[in-house]
Amino acid sequence: MDLYVNNETSRLRKVILGIANSNGPTPTLEEAYDPKSIEHIKNGTYPKEEDKVKEMAEVLEVLKKYNVDVYRPELIKDYNQIFARDICFVIEDKIIKSNILPNRDQEIEAIRYILDQIPQEKLIKLPEEAHMEGGDVMLHNDYIFVGTYRGDDYANYITARTNVEAVEEIRKHFPHKIVKSFNLRKSNTDARANALHLDCCFQPVGPKYAILHKNGFLEESEYQWLVDFFGKDNIFEITADEMYEMYSNIFSISEHVVISDASFTRLNAWLRARDITVEEVHYREIAKQEGLLRCSTMPLVRDKN
């Protein structure tokens, strides 16, 4: 299989979509690894498997509507396999295997049948000390935007998934790209003050636009760099509550078509006013696990510009 992804919005041709079947029992508080899941476990509102399966089926139907080739992970019994973006990601014609939380290691084996179709020289395995998840990697043509956490207390945050060593590895493997990193706000306990990944507070959309949340960034200068880069008039600024609901975690099929949650009325109206078709799905249950549409999809092939 020939891979190619160079940005977030070119026409999608092939994608991995996670699965919610046999998702396992509700985790204990000790087993949860993000504050939003912890919140719903405590409240007794953690999502049920049948609801998550139904929500992912809606996304599959939209992808089929646009003739996208969809690959699914092989089923691992009683295992969370929804968030395909975390375990690997494509940059240009190479696929990078993430170094993720140890209790999620089996997830990569569920897509082994896909990796076996890719030439070995196109597979990049990061060194053990370089931690990275795909939600922190955002492609924008000449740029690779990477969310990270630079604090000395990195090891104290289960929500810090990409470290500075991984940013340097990306620079090493893609020296012709401009790699721009962003220091993200982390919290183990407050989902409204936690940018789990870069795509929880930022994403390019359409031909020239971006969704952005200021408080997701620890350094205002880095947030301002994005404002200046895209232009203030081209940015949809989301509130803390909208970040919590995961407004920035929609998914682009092309510059002119996105999949978004039906509840995102303010965002969806803004996109439609800019001639972007919004395919609405219901993803409120999966959102309770602090992931949404971009998290559960991993593009393998997009058109070259």
Rank of each mutant, 00 (worst) to 15 (best):
D2Q: 13
N7G: 07
N7Q: 04
E8Y: 05
S10G: 05
S10M: 09
R13F: 06
K14F: 04
G24I: 11
T28P: 04
L29G: 08
D34P: 02
D34T: 10
D34L: 08
S37Q: 10
I38Y: 00
I41S: 11
N43H: 13
E50A: 01
E55N: 13
V59Q: 02
V59I: 15
L60P: 00
E61C: 12
V62P: 07
V62R: 06
L63I: 11
K65G: 09
V68E: 05
R72Y: 14
I87K: 04
V90M: 01
V90E: 06
D93M: 12
K94H: 12
I95M: 03
I96C: 05
K97T: 10
N99M: 05
L101V: 10
N103T: 12
D105L: 14
D105N: 15
E109A: 14
I111L: 06
I111S: 01
R112D: 15
Q117R: 09
I118S: 01
P119I: 05
Q120H: 12
K122E: 06
L123P: 05
I124S: 05
L126P: 09
E129N: 15
E129F: 14
G134T: 04
D136L: 00
N141D: 15
V146S: 01
V146M: 07
V146G: 02
G147I: 03
R150Y: 13
G151Q: 01
D152N: 11
Y154V: 04
Y154I: 07
A155K: 12
Y157E: 00
Y157C: 03
Y157K: 00
R161H: 08
N163G: 02
A166L: 06
V167C: 09
E168M: 13
E169K: 13
H176M: 07
I178N: 11
I178R: 12
S181G: 08
K186I: 02
S187V: 03
T189Y: 11
H197R: 03
D199T: 07
P204L: 03
V205W: 02
P207M: 04
K208D: 10
I211T: 01
I211A: 02
L212R: 03
G216F: 05
L218G: 05
W225T: 10
W225L: 11
V227C: 03
D228R: 11
F229G: 02
K232M: 02
E237C: 03
E237M: 06
E242S: 06
E242I: 07
M243R: 09
M246D: 03
Y247T: 01
I250W: 01
I250T: 04
S252Y: 01
S252F: 05
I253F: 07
S254G: 08
L267K: 05
L271A: 07
A273K: 15
R274Y: 09
D275M: 10
T277M: 09
E279R: 07
H282S: 09
H282M: 11
R284S: 15
G291P: 02
G291I: 07
L293G: 02
R294K: 09
T297C: 14
M298K: 06
L300K: 05
V301S: 00
R302N: 01
R302G: 06
